[in-house]
């Protein structure tokens, strides 16, 4: 077990670190995880969707923690970004991706230090980097998300997700706890327990269209959207289940709800496909049900009491408040200096 990560399960291979917001503490979390692996995982892999490990925040101009890697660790980054770190990295594989900073490469750290992780922008880039690391025998991989992007948390990309939250979300503990709760609710949409729903989503993905059936015993039909005549007929006839293969926004659920004569069970592939405002999600759930086929396995929440915008919240009460909204998830706060040099 890891000294600082007693809550880290051993059966996760790819771990996503996502933030409730920019500057919530993703890099600090990443560094703590890398350090916490200790001798259990001597050569972890690390990559970032976006850019991480830069000396200063692009936006605010304030210093940021660097990404620190030990000898033997693996990194995926753009070849040109290697010069920006102090670690020495031996290139092992080129993933085939091209960036403005050169080829995307996976390399082994031959002398410890800091690294700039850059050049990976899409899920396909992430998959290519993970595949290369697997070929190199990397036992555990950390994927850092950019800003509050959730792409890395897609269960088809990562096996588990750690959520970073912190004082940057608000000037009071209550504000931070509320926004963290909203984010957790977005990630913790429950799995559908109906056996037929998986087949319905398969049909939706195969045709890349909305798939639906009338409840309790209608057959599967596909439609362009909720206003497609086929969909209107089913929604108007009573209860229905709808599978949506792609992104789901407020407009779509509002249309479904408006056309429905009964109750809807709305299925998303996973929580990263949901882009509902908390208000719309709450309104929809008053009458209908929202489920996913593949839930996100949330491993824990990390709490950063320091805000890069200039204020600090008391650590213990903040952690307690996050624990109260995290519904049993492990919650930790890593002990770091707020303004690294």
């Amino acid at each position: 077990m890891h000294a600082t990560l007693p809550w880290m399960p051993q059966d996760v291979f790819v771990i996503a670190v996502v933030g409730c917001s920019k500057n919530a503490g993703k890099t600090t979390t990443l560094n703590a995880l890398l350090a916490g692996f200790g001798d259990d995982v001597p050569n972890p892999g690390v990559l970032s969707i976006g850019i991480d490990g830069e000396e200063v925040d692009f936006w605010l101009g304030v210093p940021k923690p660097r990404v620190e890697v030990r000898q033997g660790a693996f990194v995926a980054t753009a070849e040109g970004a290697l010069a920006a770190g102090t670690a020495l990295v031996e290139i092992c594989e080129r993933t085939g991706g091209r960036t403005l900073l050169g080829d995307l490469v996976v390399g082994r750290v031959t002398a410890p230090g800091s690294v700039l992780l850059a050049g990976i922008r899409s899920k396909d880039d992430v998959r290519a980097a993970i595949a290369a690391m697997k070929r190199l025998g990397v036992p555990r991989i950390l994927v850092d998300g950019a800003y509050q992007r959730l792409a890395a948390a897609d269960p088809e990309v990562s096996d588990g997700t750690i959520l970073a939250t912190g004082a940057v979300l608000g000037t009071t503990i209550d504000q931070v706890a509320l926004r963290t709760l909203e984010f957790l609710q977005r990630l913790r949409v429950p799995r559908s327990e109906f056996a037929d729903d998986g087949a319905l989503m398969d049909a939706a993905r195969r045709d890349n269209r909305l798939a639906m059936r009338a409840l309790p015993a209608g057959g599967i039909v596909t439609a362009d959207g909720p206003t497609d005549p086929v969909a209107v007929q089913i929604l108007g006839s009573g209860d229905a289940v709808i599978a949506i293969p792609g992104a789901i926004g407020d407009d779509l659920v509002r249309q479904c709800a408006a056309l429905s004569a009964g109750r809807i069970r709305l299925l998303a592939r996973d929580p990263t496909r949901l882009f509902l405002t908390p208000q719309e999600a709450t309104a929809f759930r008053k009458r209908h049900d929202l489920r996913v086929i593949q839930p996100i396995r949330i491993l824990g929440v990390t709490v950063n009491p320091f805000s890069v915008l200039g204020w600090t919240l008391p650590r213990e009460p903040l952690v307690a408040a996050i624990r109260a909204v995290a519904d049993g998830l492990p919650v930790v706060s890593f002990d770091v200096h707020p303004h690294p040099t």
Partner: peptide, 18 residues
């Protein structure tokens, strides 16, 4: 910035990014 980040995630979620 949040809005821009959400837009990219939405495009990814819809399978259109490539």
């Amino acid at each position: 910035l949040s809005n821009l980040a959400e837009w990219v995630d939405m495009v990814e979620a819809d399978g259109l990014r490539q």
